[in-house]
Design a protein around this nucleic acid. Sequence first.
DNA 1: ATGGTCGTCCCACGA
Length: 267
Amino acid sequence: MIRIATFNVNSIKAHIVNVTNWLKAAKPDVVLMQEIKTTDDGFPRLEIEDLGYNIAAVGQKTYNGVAILSKHPLTVEQRALPGHPGDEQARYIEGLIEVPDSGKGKRTVLRVASIYLPNGNPAGTEKFTYKLAWMDRLRDHAASLLKLEEVLVLGGDYNVAPADEDVYDPEGWRDDALCKPETRRAFRSLLNLGYTDAIRALHTQPHLYTFWDYQAGCWQRDEGLRIDHLLLSPQAADRLSESGVDRDPRGKDKPSDHTPVWCELDI
DNA sequence: ATGGTCGTCCCACGA
C-alpha cells in the first residue's frame, strides 16, 4: 500500500511547522506540493529530509512553485508542462517513483505530477485566457501519458470546483474562474480521457471541501470549496483502496488556506 | 460594514 497526498501549502517557509507536523501524523509516502513560493535556496530541505523524504522542486520567487516529496527513490521527468516554451510560471513537475513491492522484491513504477493550475480570476481577462490555455495543454499531456498505461496520479490544486456541490455558495461563486462553465467543461474533458477523481470514486456526499478562504471566518463556518484533486489513470484507479480529505492541518495554528487530499493505492 | 485575511516584500498584488 502506498499513500499519496496533495497539499497546497501557501508558502513552505511560512508553514513549515504545520507541514512537518502533518507529515509526522499522516505519514504519506508521496506528497504533491503546490505554492511553495520559493526557489531552491529558500526551501527548508533539511527539515523535510529529516523525516525520510527525497525532494524534487520547481521553485519560483514569491509566487507558485511545486514539489514532489517521496520516501522511495524519485527521478524527475518534466519540470514544466509541455507546449509553452518560455512560460516562467512554476506550476508543473512530474516524476517517477520506484515503489518496492510488499511481496517478492518486485518493483512497481509510479508516475506522479504535482499541478498548480492557474487561478484565472478575474474571469474575462487575460488571466482567464491563460487558465483555459493551460488546461488545454494539460489535457493534451494527460492524453499522451495515458498511452504509457502506467500507475499514474495527477494531483494538485486544480483551481476548479467541478460541480455546485463542491461550493458552499454556488450562486455567489457562479461567475468565478473556479466555477465558470468553461472551466468545468475543461476539467470534465480531462476526466473524460479516462481519469478517475479519487475522492468522487469513493465518496458521494457533497461539501468535501479542501480550501477555505482566510477571510470572514470561512473555516469556522465551513464555507469552503473542493478544488484540490487526485486524478488517477485506469491502472491507478484499479488499485484505489481509500481516499479522503484530511481537515486536521487547516484547523491548526498558522495553517495554509488549503488542506491535504489523500488516497491509498494497493501496490 | 464602500471591508473582513494572508504571504511576499516594501508596495500593492495575488489568492
